[in-house]
Write a protein that binds this DNA or RNA. Structure first.
Length: 493
RNA sequence: CGGGAUGUAGUUCAGCCCGGUUAGAAUGCCUGGUUUGGGACCAGGAGGUCGUUGGUUCGAAUCCAGCUAUCCCGACCA
């Protein structure tokens, strides 16, 4: 084995790192906490981005771009938001370097080029955007304002992990302004539903939608909606959030509009985002000890076609032609195929390589099978190999891709469902978290103190209060105080 | 940021404790040949200022310090 992958059982974290690095998705860089997204990883992100972008536009949003830098005075305008992010901000203090007079060939920061006002590298863009919205919004006719931006943000995290938590990451952030509380709330819900739709239908990953408790809420929001997914180690990954911001930012940035009755009102706001972290979720939810497993709808290459090559040049040429013909036919149906006719690598090497890369289907075209009117097709999700007639191959492949997409979702869903447990006893709660990782539904008295205490004792946090949560009488798992519903607990990334 | 570990060829690592020729291996890479239905084989070859800066020393991959990066365990977090 040229590229050994640590097994999940041996070390889950190393397994994850191996997949990212050896699967060719990303690489470490010379910058602390920042990664290089390699072409294969970026192709995956482009697919995700393009689909989401289309979904945003179908729901009436438009794209714009706001500056990377936020003047400190703007950043601090919304107090809670500023406080929440303050301890992880990169700050620009100077605008010039100069050659070091004492050390030839080296540069130093020019002390004379100190900025009057420091610039914060955006950890999120509410401040700069709401400062702009003030200029754009005067009348109810200017509302709703539905803007999204694709951007990079910087959050100076203590400890970073490829895709899951990097100091700089790519994301989209939607920032909307509305005339009424109800409209803004509807937007908040619309977007969390859109994210759930994307993650479930494209990433093949089931999610639980819910509301964050007060202590897990976005800094500056009145309510944070979240989608939570379960990874193969039973831990939760927050995969997307949609915030109802109330009038907090409108008040902080003095954004008012005149309504039909000619009275001034503050506007209502939402913001929502998903990031390259979704790639981490995709990897951890579906992959196995042989490498990545890409859901067909997002896979950079959905099919790899490998023609068998031999000394017989004439025969080899026929195999390569067949492979290229199939690729063209697939392209007509919108299926992304890759032909590997590299004669310097043996088939076994290629099989292993494309399994590592997670390509959903592998089609092998060889003289022996072709004489029998069949080709061998192997699917990545189940590792099954089977022969299929050469007639209507594109149709067969399309069917298989759909089946893989569905199978991956079903598999992830049954794994998740079998790892959600209702618990009513705190000792069982603690024991379960250590022995059988997963989600736990338990009663909670609704206080931040209890939530903190549970976190301290078990490292588990309230992931969300699920939407459409069944109401039932119960007693808080820790304090025994009365409770009307169960909330979702888990250890999280 | 606290605790632990690590950084030597593209990659994985040995050498360091006990300083002293020209720093090794496997794998990968290049060339030629034989191969090709699950990570091929033979022969030849290229590739390293030992993470970085400074210190100790006649002499540093080896000893000491700072910095930097990565991994693991915490705290923080999408």
């Amino acid at each position: 084995m040229a590229k050994e992958i640590t097994s999940r059982a041996e070390n889950y974290s190393e397994w994850y790192n191996d997949l990212v690095l050896k699967g060719g998705l990303a690489d470490y860089s010379a910058v602390r906490g920042c990664m290089v997204i390699k072409p294969y990883g970026y192709a995956l992100w482009e697919n995700m981005r393009d689909i989401l972008d289309k979904m945003f536009k179908e729901t009436g949003h438009v794209n714009a771009y706001f500056p990377l830098f936020v003047p400190k005075s703007l950043f601090e305008a919304e107090e809670k938001n500023a406080e929440g992010f303050a301890k992880e901000c990169a700050v620009v203090t100077h605008y010039r370097l100069k050659t070091d007079p004492d050390n030839k060939g080296k540069l130093i920061v020019d002390p004379e080029a100190k900025l009057e006002e420091e610039l914060v590298v955006r950890p999120t863009s509410e401040a700069i955007i709401w400062n702009t919205y003030k200029k754009w919004i005067q009348s109810y006719r200017d509302l709703p304002l539905l803007i999204n931006q694709w951007a990079n943000v910087v959050r100076w995290e203590m400890r970073t992990r490829l895709f899951l938590r990097t100091a700089e990451f790519l994301w989209q952030e939607g920032h909307t302004a509305h005339a009424t509380r109800q409209e803004a709330m509807e937007e908040t819900i619309r977007m969390i539903n859109l994210y759930a739709d994307f993650v479930e239908n494209y990433m093949a990953l089931p999610v639980i939608k819910g509301v964050k408790s007060e202590s897990e809420r976005f800094a500056g929001a009145e309510d944070t909606y979240t989608i939570e997914a379960m990874m193969q180690d039973g831990k939760a990954l927050q995969s997307g959030t949609s915030h109802f911001l109330g009038q907090n930012f409108a008040k902080a940035f003095d954004v008012k509009f005149v309504n039909k009755e000619n009275t001034e009102e503050f506007v209502w706001a939402t913001s929502w985002g998903v990031s390259t972290r979704l790639i981490g979720a995709l990897i951890m939810a579906h992959s196995d000890d042989d490498g990545l497993v890409m859901p067909p709808k997002l896979a950079p290459h959905q099919v790899v076609i490998i023609p068998f090559l031999s000394k017989n040049l004439e025969e080899t040429e026929v195999m390569i032609d067949k492979a290229n013909d199939l690729k063209k036919e697939l392209a007509k149906m919108g299926i992304r195929a890759l032909v590997d006719s590299d004669e310097t690598k043996r088939p076994g090497f290629k099989f292993a390589e494309y399994e590592l890369k997670g390509i959903p289907l592998r089609v092998v075209i060889g003289p022996r099978d072709l004489a029998n009117g069949v080709v061998e097709i192997a699917r990545r999700d189940t590792k099954e190999k089977a022969f299929f007639p050469t007639d209507n191959l594109p149709g067969t492949i399309q069917g298989l891709l759909e089946d893989i997409q569905q199978n991956m979702f079903n598999r992830a869903k049954s794994f998740r469902d079998s790892n959600i447990t209702k618990v009513d006893d705190f000792e069982v709660f603690q024991k379960l978290l250590d022995e059988k990782p997963g989600f736990i539904l338990a009663h909670w008295d609704g206080t931040a103190e209890t939530e903190d205490k549970i976190k301290e004792l078990t490292k588990a946090t309230i992931r969300c209060i699920p939407l459409d949560n069944p109401q039932e009488d119960g007693k808080c798992i820790l304090t025994g105080k009365s409770s009307k519903q169960r909330v979702l607990f888990a250890r999280a990334y």
